[in-house]
Amino acid sequence: MSEVEVRAGAPGAAPPRPASLSGHYAMRGLVASEWTKLRTVRSTMWTLAITIVLGIGLGALATAETRAHWTASNQVGFDATRTSLIGVFFGQFSIGILGVLVMSAEYGTGTIRATFAAAPRRPRVLVAKAAVFGAVALAVSEVVAFVAYFLGQSLLSAPAIHTTIGSPGALRAVAGSGLYLCALGLFALGLAAIIRHTAGAISAFIGILLVLPIIVSALPSSIGIDIERFLPAHIGQSMLSLHPGIRSFAPWPGFLLLCGYALAALVAGAVLLVRRDA
């Protein structure tokens, strides 16, 4: 290996930029690249598999248990739709972890430097990540929600009560739970762009979902009750229920608020990506 050929062509002249390339590197390429990144690491498969197994499995378990121990008194306040969607509350952690990893794994491994060298306009990279991860998260979450719903309702055979997708609010709750997971995942992605460390971003994400509600419930109830409905987890409860509590945001306004949180985290992440050294 004495002579290393790197390029066919005449020596002595600097290679020009290929004439076929005009304009600028484009979003299409960045999205394709993010899709390649997402499907070529194992953590994607694991987190999605866990989301599917928990989302569908726990819903099936909960509805089967309810049916097995059914008594007439169960009927009071029973929400068949929500019971079948119980797994979504566990799926939110695995989807969130995937959202974090999409960003933080690049920092953890140093790939981020190659990424930003290839695409120095950093907010575009974040947009491409959000688009690809958001689409995958939404598709998987909706499949999980609908499968869990139909499976759960079929397990709630008579005398237990069940709903059909045509029942008032049922479609909204099922489709909404997929939307909830997707928006929450994007929020986690934004957090990771801000925090950049996997462990830190996952801690923050889980803290917001689990610890924040505990802190709020410890506040004097006059204050706590007003704050509670702003919490992402509380918005999720409302979106998944057929009859949200009167102090909660209604499902769609709640969802918009959640999207606002995700957007705020992503915008803050984008600003920090530009400001900080890679």
Partner: peptide, 11 residues
């Protein structure tokens, strides 16, 4: 996969 994801960004 590493090279391919980089290649895709710049056509």
């Amino acid at each position: 996969a590493h090279l391919w994801m980089l290649a895709q960004t710049n056509a």
